[in-house]
């Protein structure tokens, strides 16, 4: 760097007037076959990048990002699932000694130790040896961690009921336009048991389908409510026979005043 008297600047700025040559460093005396990153190596590397990008775009075209139905906080029957890279933590919390009274162990102690050790690895393993075989404890622990993560993720995927999961999140085509001023709707709203399974919009929850799903007629609907059907229990209706009939007509008429 030039110092002292005789320095020239551009105008009244602090930029030196003397131009520096714009030439790359010379790596020819470096050990091995060292090459310059710019532009030599980058010209080859962008090809790897391009292949990677094409593969990635093919993936996005073949598998569009999933979208389930809109969040419904009242649907307590939904079985939650985090994104796959959190599955191992999620699975850990299902084991007896890492859940319930021991949640602290599964949620804080084990991940805390693992990630803390990861963060502090340079100070836990201070020897100068770099080869993995020459530092068996560090390498062994890391292998153990990797195997545990893979195992826990695997178990979690195995445990999960994927069919039920796909079904519970499905976007239902809601083309019913429930008339909320109808008498039948008021009667429905007074039935806490029905709401528990079919939702207060009558369009279903994870415990029951939309009440309009099949094309039953009035008598069949009255029978279903009396006798139950599939996993729906009978005798849940709380009210007079006339009210039941009004409700059944309302349902048979796909949510409109008959």
């Amino acid at each position: 760097m030039q110092r002292g008297k005789g320095m020239k600047f551009v105008g009244d700025s602090r930029i030196p007037a003397e131009r520096k040559p714009n030439i790359p460093k010379d790596y020819s005396e470096y050990p091995g076959k060292t090459e310059a990153f710019w532009p030599n190596f980058l010209l080859k590397e962008w090809m790897i990048g391009a292949v990677f990008l094409i593969g990635f775009l093919c993936l996005t075209i073949a598998h569009p990002a999933p979208l389930e139905r809109v969040a419904d906080p009242t649907d307590s029957g939904y079985i939650p699932l985090p994104d796959w890279y959190f599955l191992f933590l999620y699975q850990l919390l299902k084991y007896e000694y890492a859940a319930g009274d021991f949640t602290v162990i599964g949620a804080v102690v084990i991940p805390g130790i693992a990630f803390g050790a990861l963060l502090l690895a340079p100070w836990l393993d201070r020897g100068p040896e770099r080869r993995p075989m020459k530092r068996p404890i560090g390498s062994g622990l890391m292998l153990l961690a990797v195997v545990s993560i893979i195992f826990l993720t695997w178990e979690s995927v195995d445990d999960h009921d994927w069919e039920a999961a796909a079904q519970q999140g499905e976007i239902v085509d809601v083309d019913y336009d429930v008339d909320e001023s109808a008498e039948g709707y008021d009667i429905y709203l007074s039935q806490d048991s029905c709401i528990g399974c079919h939702g207060d919009d009558m369009l279903g929850t994870s415990a029951g389908p939309p009440v309009f799903e099949s094309d039953y007629d009035v008598d069949e609907i009255i029978e279903i409510i009396h006798e139950g059907i599939g996993s729906m229990p009978g005798d849940q209706f709380d009210g007079s026979e006339e009210e039941l009939e009004t409700l059944a007509e309302f349902i048979a008429n796909d949510g409109q005043e008959p």
């Binding site: 520096k20 050990p31 076959k33 060292t34 090459e35 310059a36 710019w38 030599n40 190596f41």
Partner: peptide, 25 residues
């Protein structure tokens, strides 16, 4: 460059070597 003297900065960014042992080529 005349106004902002960007050559040293550009050389800092552009000049770095890729040693043989990290080069898949």
């Amino acid at each position: 460059d005349e106004r902002l003297d960007i050559t040293p900065m550009w050389r800092d960014i552009a000049d770095h070597e890729v040693p043989e042992h990290v080069n898949p080529a």
